[in-house]
Simulated scan of single mutants.
Amino acid sequence: MALSLAERARLISPSATIAMAQKARDLKAQGRTIFDFTLGESDFDTPENVGRAAWRAIERGKTRYTPAAGIPELRDAVARLYRDRGLETTAKQVVISNGAKHALHNAFMALVNPGDEVIVPAPFWVSYADLIRLAGGVPIILNTSESDDFKLKPDAFRAAVTPRTRLLLLNSPCNPTGMVYSVEEQTALADAILETEVGVVSDEIYEQLIFDGTEPVCFATLRPGLADRVVTISGVSKSYAMTGWRIGWAVAPPAIAGFMADLQSQETSNPCSISQHAALEAITGPQDSVREMREEFARRRLYALERVAQLPDVTCRPPSGAFYLFLNVSAHYGRTLGERLVTNSTEFCMAALETAGVALVMGQAFGADHYVRLSYATDLETLSQGFDALADFLKK
């Protein structure tokens, strides 16, 4: 008898962002000019001081196994980072993982029992629901509205809580919308959460990529006692242009962090030793590169919003963080664009890619089919040419 897949194989599907990026690469390989706005990956190089730290680690022979939860120096540095933000944290509460996605997986495996419900506000990052299902949980998708800037309201949270509700998944700044919850909005949610027995997984990976003078907010610090309910997820991928280095972390109550470290010891052992030393330099070394990158993203955001305003029948709520625009393209549903009759976001994205060479990600993958996501983590020239192509595509 041939091998067959386990039932859990039906619980997940390939990442839509990666799938669309691969389609764009395939067309490029055929000689097509493609303007790729799919991946959540900065076009900046990793800061030079971070790269040098990695070389030094290699030269010093830091190429062996480390503790499963990460080298002590990095765990200490992450703990100090959060203490500076007002969260009383020790290194024992920090688990360094192979990227923030791995940290999320560890958190769900630590906290979710079979059948437990996890409230996920939509639009949501493509991997959340699948990671929850793999842990045996049930993602409860709560739709938010564009008029509310895609933010979950406390009363909507209260109404969604059942005896099976285990967690709320919070993401600010948000992928895919770029929206940032204010301190007041997060505090109101914290108060609603403290009325229940529900815990929180707070994905704060874009915390430093925020605009208009806003400061990062660590959700776990907002109310006394809240830290005992929260697992905070972050890492170096976005803020330090280190996506390929694969270093993320979780900050959790001690017992939860201990289990996550044990789980990781069985699954992957430690994250890459060289990447850990690079990440240590990233968060403890000069922060000029973060400021410069944030300022450049702010310029690109303004330019992209100006261009969106010129697109026919496309709207967008101005984002406050990350590097995405979430475009409402539903006014074009029912039209033939290129050679496709477009009735949903997937067909819109395929038509834009095939006809105009513009690669976007369908909102369907984020739980919001009226929208498509555009990443402006690329240079202004590419943005200009891509918007020209998109405008021409829609006007035809």
Rank of each mutant, 00 (worst) to 15 (best):
L81G: 06
K23E: 11
D36R: 06
E184N: 02
I205F: 10
V161N: 02
L380R: 12
V372I: 12
N49G: 12
A29E: 08
V161F: 02
W125L: 05
E215F: 05
E204G: 03
M109P: 00
T38I: 07
A6W: 08
L168Q: 07
I233K: 01
Q385F: 10
V138W: 01
L27D: 09
R10H: 11
A359E: 01
A68R: 08
E267Q: 12
G363S: 11
V200S: 09
L168F: 05
G115I: 00
E292A: 12
G213D: 02
L169K: 05
L325T: 06
K62M: 15
Q93I: 01
I141R: 10
T90C: 08
A135Y: 00
I71Q: 04
L383T: 08
D43F: 14
R158T: 11
L380F: 10
R301N: 15
E347C: 01
E88P: 15
T46L: 11
T187W: 15
P318I: 02
V180E: 02
V329L: 09
R373V: 09
Q266Y: 15
E7R: 04
V183F: 10
A257K: 08
N270F: 08
L39N: 03
A365N: 04
A389Q: 09
N171F: 00
A252S: 07
A298F: 00
